[in-house]
C-alpha cells in the first residue's frame, strides 16, 4: 500500500515540477543554449583545425565534417550533464520556498519530493537533448546508428542524467543559496572536456591523460560515439553502465540523507 502511495505522491510531485518547467522555460532554454553554442563553436571555429590536426578514432579524412561526427556525441553528453545539474537549482529553490516544510509535515512519501524533481529533470533533459540532436543534424552530424543503437544511446544519456540529477539534488539540498546551488555543480559540466568528448585523450599530457582515461565521462563518451558512429566500444559500455549505476546510487543515498537531516533554523 505504501508503495502505491509513494508512486502516487511521486507522480503528483512530477506533475508539479513539469508545470514549473513549462512556466519557467528560461531554465530549459539555457540548458539547450549552452551545448548548442559549444557545438557551433567546435564545429565552425575549431572544427577545421581540430579535424585536420587530430587522428580521429573513426578514421576519415580529417576535415570539418569528420570532426563534427566526432564531437557531436561529446556535446550530447555535455547537454545531458548541463540539464541534470540544473536539478540543484530547482531543488534548492524549493527548499528556500517554505513549501518544502509543508511537505515535510504532511503524511506523504518522503522521497517523493526529490523523486519528482529528479524524474522531472530527466524528462526536461531528454527534451533538450532532442533539440540539441536536431541542431547537430543540421550542422552536418551524420550518425549511422540503427534504431536499437539510437535507443541504447538515449538510454545511456538518460542514465547519466538520472545519476547526475540525484547527485545535484543532494548538492542543491546542501547549498545555502540558489546562487551557490547553481555554481556548485559547475565543475561537473567541465568533466567531458577532460575526457574524450572534444579530443582523444591520447593527445593530452600524461597526467591529464591518465585522469581522462579513468574518469566516468570517457567510457560514456566512447560508448555513445560507438553506438552512434560505429567506432569501437570495447568494455566502455560496461564501464559506462557501471558508472551510471554508481552515480545514481551514490547520488540517491546522499540526497536522501541530506533530505532527512534536520531542518535548519
Amino acid at each position: 500500500m505504501s508503495t502505491t502511495y509513494a508512486m502516487r505522491d511521486s507522480m503528483t510531485m512530477l506533475r508539479r515540477n513539469l508545470k514549473h518547467a513549462r512556466r519557467y522555460p528560461s531554465m530549459t532554454i539555457s540548458i539547450v543554449a549552452m551545448p548548442v553554442l559549444m557545438l557551433l563553436l567546435f564545429v565552425y571555429v575549431f572544427g577545421g583545425a581540430l579535424g585536420a590536426g587530430i587522428e580521429l578514432p573513426g578514421g576519415g579524412s580529417g576535415g570539418r565534417g569528420d570532426y563534427t561526427n566526432f564531437v557531436a556525441p561529446g556535446i550530447l553528453l555535455m547537454a545531458a550533464t548541463a540539464g541534470a545539474v540544473s536539478t540543484a537549482v530547482s531543488v534548492c529553490t524549493d527548499m528556500t520556498e517554505g513549501i518544502i516544510n509543508r511537505f515535510r509535515t504532511m503524511s506523504i512519501s518522503r522521497s517523493s519530493v526529490l523523486t519528482g524533481h529528479v524524474v522531472g529533470n530527466v524528462i526536461q533533459t531528454m527534451i533538450s537533448l532532442a533539440l540539441v540532436i536536431g541542431v547537430a543534424l543540421l550542422v552536418g552530424f551524420r550518425p549511422n546508428a540503427t534504431v536499437v543503437e539510437w535507443l541504447a544511446a538515449l538510454g545511456i544519456l538518460a542514465l547519466l542524467a538520472f545519476g547526475l540529477s540525484w547527485l545535484s539534488a543532494a548538492i542543491g539540498l546542501g547549498s545555502s543559496s540558489v546562487e551557490a546551488a547553481s555554481n556548485a555543480p559547475m565543475p561537473l559540466t567541465f568533466l567531458p572536456f577532460l575526457g574524450s568528448a572534444i579530443v582523444p585523450p591520447e593527445s593530452m599530457p600524461v597526467g591529464l591523460r591518465w585522469f581522462a582515461e579513468y574518469q566516468p565521462f570517457t567510457p560514456m563518451t566512447d560508448t555513445l560515439r560507438g553506438l552512434l558512429m560505429g567506432t569501437e566500444i570495447g568494455d566502455s559500455a560496461w564501464l559506462a553502465l557501471g558508472w551510471g549505476v554508481v552515480l545514481s546510487v551514490l547520488g540517491f543515498l546522499w540526497a536522501r540523507s541530506a533530505f532527512h537531516r534536520e531542518a535548519k533554523i
Binding site: R8, D9, T12, R15, R16, K19, H20, R23, Y24, E97, G98, I99, I100, N101, R102, F103, T105, M106, S107, I108
Partner: peptide
Amino acid sequence: RARIGVTGQFAAVDGLLTAEENMLLMADL
C-alpha cells in the same frame, strides 16, 4: 502528520502554481 496541518511564518505556497493548482496539489497529496 496525517492529523495535523501547519501554516508557518513564511507562507508555504507554490508561487509558480495558481491558487487552484496549489489547492489541488494538496488534494492529490
